[in-house]
Design a binder for these strands. Structure first.
Lengths: 169, 169
DNA sequence: TATTGTTATACTCTATAACTATA
DNA sequence: TATAGTTATAGAGTATAACAATA
């Protein structure tokens, strides 16, 4: 029908789809997408996903870390962490131990095979960072990392202070 | 080495799970996770997901945008864009038109209802950005946005130049 | 032959509710 | 009662292969 006529105000072939560029959230999301795409390929070569590689490295750096601690640190829900860790245990990469004190706690550490794979994952993640930041000067990298950290901390504080946090329903 | 015994080298209760903090990719991923969580809530109140809200705004800013253009701009695969746009059309928010020239092209624009919702989404996304960046000074915001943009451009260039791009089996 | 868009499908990641076992 | 972890399930998001229509 197009009863109207003014169907188009833009010539195809002139994308100009950067119109939302000024939106920071979207820009950050798209950047993360690019990074995750590459990370998925790199870790996939080790038989890992970005999430499982991160969990493996986190445990390598913190042997005996508890289930819940890991979930909180990686910002993922407990049920998802359970699934992730179970798979790594089944693959023989992680050892699952009960706690000495509170018997509800479950602690994780690397098996020898897990240690070997973690070392390769460490190399991979460092190489990824290096490749991702290749376009920035050392000074810019520092600035960017500092701003990302500052923003993350500010957001966490916002959430804690949020009145909606207490008034929530 | 380390036969048994040294099960734990860390006292629970002392998280120290920031060990991977120096990894930029992870820090950025966690920041994006925080932002997406909030965006999901905000857009959910409008009956949209972050992805559908972004597509709606993109079309609002670029009436007549083609299917493939939108997919490229948002870094998502064509099949996923098809699903996304079809739902918005079914909800009466988008109008789907064929192209005058190349009859393979499909163009999208907003219906009146889509325009009204896009306006609300615009307000929402701006408010989200404002809230997300509240912890940074105006100067820091500019710097951060510039660095994110620079890094994104550098990555796109890397991918284009990549020898693996041509040698890829 | 190459490109645009679609269909079908599968995998990763995330979220919630309901359950258990400890505390 | 509250907390740690689990089970089951659902929903977004993303990816690939195979296809139809058009160029």
């Amino acid at each position: 029908m197009a009863a109207r006529r003014e169907t188009i105000t833009r010539k195809p072939g002139e994308p100009d789809l950067s119109s939302l560029g000024p939106n920071f959230g979207l820009a950050l999301r798209l950047l993360d997408l690019r990074l995750m795409r590459r990370a998925g390929e790199a870790f996939g070569a080790l038989g890992l996903t970005p999430a499982s590689a991160t969990a493996l490295l986190m445990i390598a750096a913190n042997p005996g870390a508890r289930h819940g601690e890991l979930a909180d640190a990686l910002l993922i829900q407990r049920p998802n962490m359970t699934k992730l860790l179970k798979q790594l245990v089944d693959e023989g990469l992680l050892r699952r131990d009960g706690s000495d004190g509170d018997r509800r706690h479950v602690m994780f550490s690397l098996t020898p095979a897990g240690g070997r794979l973690a070392a390769r994952a460490r190399t991979t993640i460092d190489a990824l960072d290096e490749a991702h930041l290749a376009g920035l000067t050392p000074g810019e990298r520092e600035t960017l990392a500092a701003l990302v950290k500052k923003m993350s901390l500010a957001l966490d504080r916002q959430i804690d202070d949020s009145p909606a946090r207490n008034a929530a329903e």
